[in-house]
Design a protein around this nucleic acid. Structure first.
Lengths: 330, 330
DNA sequence: CTGAAAGCGCTTACAG
DNA sequence: CTGAAAGCGCTTACAG
């Protein structure tokens, strides 16, 4: 059975299509008796406006795209934070009466599809998550003169963002290790294509440098396996190291495992600090000290910024502060 | 600057709108020279068809909704599997040229919004994830005569599903513990509103029953914290228990921690088996034995089933088998 | 405050 | 194979 249209609601209510439309859209200038008879008809017929027809004329879709631009290995979208971020975004959009189209851009082809989709006028704005520094997407989207907000800092000009204070977070971590009396503090980095990885590394370097210590850098890619691998390499390079700052918790968990296998006690022999404070950080043995990133708040802020931008408001970048959470591993 | 329409492409190419439309949609009956001149104009103008206008007439949107019907605590959407599932679905849809609208239905209000959205003709089909046994959504959606596939078995009649063999998985786990010579095997359940929780519990009960052993059931809700809590209670009830089957890995991880704190060695004193085989299972100390659920395959199968249904094909339920992965904890 | 009419940008029979 | 015309289901000036 076909879905009823405005037309048939109007017929049923004995008024014009215009009036039905006005009632549906809650316009003030409608006589109460017309409102009532229309609402009655709407209810009886189970009428719901056709979205496509409405979008076509209003040029609004009340839909925002969340584009996760992530390499195929899934640096970000396999991350436990992914759910938290998507969830927070979804809730925020929901309470604003908007919808969320999720697109993963893992390849050039899918990146192209994203652009096409956006160009097709399907969404009112775009939230970019997990960009590489060299990602072509922000620039491409900015060209479409559609509101865009990035969840990371980007190299593209004029794309507003809501970012973590990654440098500051790394400083917190390293300073904490120094205060604990650690002398040989290594770091395990995320993939260096990502801004946040570079910033966390920079924070580590700068803090060590201020105290005249030598940096020791192991390369990871934000996965547990890479954290374990980098830890083994760091131990081989300097068996005397007494602390490690991993640029995210997953790698810290991998490092804990590698340290355990190498017979090192944590924190007695080697102190470990992670970054993100995912739920799993409380459940490792020993429980992991970490830098808490307010991901949910960041997501909320990003959505707000985007909605504000869509309404023609200003778009000043936002930097979210972090917090050190001390547990057993340091 | 306004986006170009079919109209202006036609003018530029010196042909009718009909012809442009045919070229865009790749119809065979177009003269090569017309095709060329149209493609040229499309390229020069950067033309992309307006989605709303197209949807309005074709009645297809090439968009599918993924509805995560989850209580506010987020039993499922905070789960590490959430990313894996969403990711697999997204990839599969992408390769089929479809889009994904993600909706979380956490309250009656948001459930209503989901229904409205679906009724608005915005999507061609719906994939339901994480249903309670009593969730009203499947029935409500089925009434809209729109293709629906559930990621769980549902109580609603006529909603095809792709489910795990939860009962069989639980049997694998318990049988394994019995083979290891364990005598007092407890279980920690998921929230019993969820079908899968009940099925895993049923598999546990049946297997124990077959060997005449007494069931010991602790109630959890799929979170780590609940696993730890249930483990403490089970230990208080029966300090002699020598094995526990947790209905998911997160709870198993919580249980490991509680056992550690209670001074029990794993697996010497108590063997532990989880369910799902999330990545974290390999990184616990000791590494966790688990039942591997082919979540990605399940997601792929669900998408296939839905696409098939949309094309008017049959919709036979699918049950995915599980596999025991033995590690150090048992 | 209400209604008739135009129009949003496409696709699709229908002639030719 | 191509084009003119109708129509998808809405909203929105414009009269009244």
């Amino acid at each position: 059975m076909k879905r009823p249209t405005l037309q048939v609601v109007a017929a049923r209510a004995g008024v014009s299509k215009s009036s039905v439309s006005r009632v549906i859209n809650g316009e003030a200038t409608v006589a109460p008796e017309i409102r009532d008879v229309v609402m009655q008809a709407v209810r009886e017929l189970g009428y719901v406006p056709n979205g496509a027809a409405r979008n076509l004329v209003t040029r609004r879709t009340d839909t925002l795209a969340v584009v996760v631009s992530d390499p195929p290995q899934g640096v970000v979208s396999d991350d436990p934070l992914f759910s938290a971020v998507v969830r927070a975004i979804s809730r925020e959009l929901e309470s604003a009466g908007k919808r969320l189209v999720l697109m993963l851009a893992e390849s050039d082809q899918s990146r192209f599809r994203v652009e096409q989709y956006i160009a097709g006028g399907h969404v009112d704005g775009v939230l970019l998550v997990a960009l590489h520094g060299t990602d072509p997407l922000p620039a491409a989207l900015a060209r479409q003169d559609l509101p865009v907000v990035s969840f990371n800092r980007t190299s593209a000009q004029g794309v507003p963002y809501v970012a973590l204070d990654n440098t500051g977070g790394a400083e917190l971590a390293v300073r904490h290790l120094l205060e604990r009396g650690r002398r040989r503090i290594a770091t395990i980095t995320g993939p260096l294509e990502l801004h946040e990885s570079r910033e966390r590394l920079a924070g580590y370097r700068r803090t060590l440098q201020d105290t005249g210590r030598r940096p020791m850098v192991g390369l990871g890619d934000f996965t547990r396996a890479s954290g374990a691998q980098a830890m083994r390499e760091l131990l081989a390079d300097d068996p005397e190291l007494d602390a490690v700052f991993a640029a995210n918790d997953l790698m810290a968990i991998g490092a804990l495992r590698a340290l355990h296998q190498a017979g090192r006690r944590v924190p007695e022999d080697v102190a470990v600090v992670g970054f993100d404070d995912i739920e799993a950080a409380s459940y490792t043995t020993p429980a992991l000290t970490s830098i808490r990133s307010p991901m949910a708040d960041q997501a909320t802020a990003a959505v707000h910024l985007l909605l504000q931008l869509i309404d023609g408001g200003p778009a000043d970048p936002v930097i979210m502060p972090n917090q050190l959470v001390i547990r057993e591993s340091s």
